[in-house]
Design a protein around this nucleic acid. Structure first.
Lengths: 234, 234
DNA sequence: CATGTTTTTTTGTTGCAACAAAAATGTGAA
DNA sequence: TTCACATTTTTGTTGCAACAAAAAAACATG
């Protein structure tokens, strides 16, 4: 007996469907700033919010805690963490190492199509800033970076980098519009594109590292306190 | 009125006690080579093995899958993965970036006590090799590396590095005694200790990077196949 | 008002069972 | 044997409830 047309694309089986969905959903919300540092999250509240049972909600929260996107403030209390300066410094160091690596590796796979995509994304960033849509600008900025990193062909590397972005992203909002307005990244992005065109690994790494460093300085300047206080308002 | 600093992240409690225990237990077993690539793991089998219910067993397996220490070979089948050359290359690149960073940062905190500890660990490695206790040698080798990395004072960095070691460690055994016998690491370890004594960050990074590269070459030579085949016997 | 103390409510953990889907096994024909 | 098909067993997922512990609220006391 003939089987139904099994579309050639091999189906990606999805283990832990609801839990994975809850995790991605929460990740998105955290990056988009749906929660503020200090907000308390509970399994039952999340399960109600996403209309699933407690098991997938618990899976999502546990995983976010492992990522560092949520932390325990007590034995039975998980909250959105206040990002301390020491955290930001650690994350920045790791970003420099890993995103620098990804950028250096990306030049091998960089083609014309990629360049066009990056140019387009940079244009989107610029127009978003012109129109003061700061959130969109930051979103396209992320797309720009990961469009490059994806060229490295290293999936686990990408996963770790994304987790680092998640951790800063969660405590990122509230810094508008000061943070985005400066357009600190434009020059670095241009340099990165140029490096990809010329397939210069060292230059690509330098451009990305410079972008990360500028962003770090920018965040530090805005928050304007060098001690253990958190980096977010309220 | 002034409130005391809340110090939200650094409390000591154990959320998910049984699940965490199961996770650590499995991690240990994987590194020690209790399983071979291709072995199938099931929730119920693990829950019976560790004498807990299915929930903590499921938590442990899910987390190991996230780490990459286990993978799905089918919708309902998780196995110990065969480490492919491309995986080893990705892991090695990330190790160079992150362990190089940790080593460079470690020199700031390196004191006399640390040096003595490292000398002692290196002595243990040497004697273990002399007595052909290859597993002990590899264990002390790990202790040596992490004794340095711990000086960086960056907990999340350490966590990511440890996950990378877990992934190679799981497919590592079966390479005895060829791998350990060569003592490729002794020279690099000496160089690392020397760098810490002189607080030379660049030298520390170079020594660790050299160690990682030598280990990678060693593994590649032993396995002796450059294609997609796995790196483990059987 | 401030501050301990008690009571009530909430919460994470853990075990477990039902269910559908997948894997393993059995069966038979060429 | 080998392959295709049918049957049985196993498995992950998901929801849920009991329990102890923790958090919140209520209360009392100075």
């Amino acid at each position: 007996m003939e089987m139904a047309p099994e579309d050639e694309g091999h189906q990606q089986h999805q283990p832990n469907r609801l839990g994975e969905m809850a995790y991605r959903n929460m990740k998105e919300r955290l990056i988009r700033g749906a929660f503020s540092p200090g907000d308390k999250l509970t399994i039952r509240a999340l399960s109600e919010m996403l209309d699933v049972s407690t098991t997938p909600a618990r899976d999502a929260i546990n995983r976010l805690v492992i990522d560092g996107a949520l932390i325990y403030s007590g034995p039975k209390t998980v909250i959105v963490p206040h990002l301390r300066l020491s955290d930001l410094e650690e994350i920045t160091q790791m970003r420099l190492a890993l995103e620098g690596l990804a950028a250096a590796l990306s030049v091998k796979a960089a083609g014309e199509q990629t360049i066009e995509e990056l140019e387009l994304l940079q244009a989107k960033i610029d127009t978003a800033l012109d129109e003061k849509r700061y959130f969109d600008a930051l979103w396209h900025n992320k797309e720009f970076h990961f469009a490059i990193y994806r060229l490295s062909g290293m999936p686990y590397l990408l996963q770790v980098i994304e987790t680092l972005w998640l951790r800063v992203g969660a405590s990122f909002n509230g810094l508008y519009p000061e943070f985005s307005e400066t357009r600190y990244g434009a020059r670095n992005h241009r340099a990165a594109i140029e490096a990809l065109v010329e397939k210069d690994a060292a230059a690509a790494r330098a451009a990305i590292e410079s972008d990360i460093r500028d962003g770090f300085r920018q965040m530090k300047k805005i928050t304007a306190d060098g001690d253990q206080r958190n980096l977010c308002r309220r």
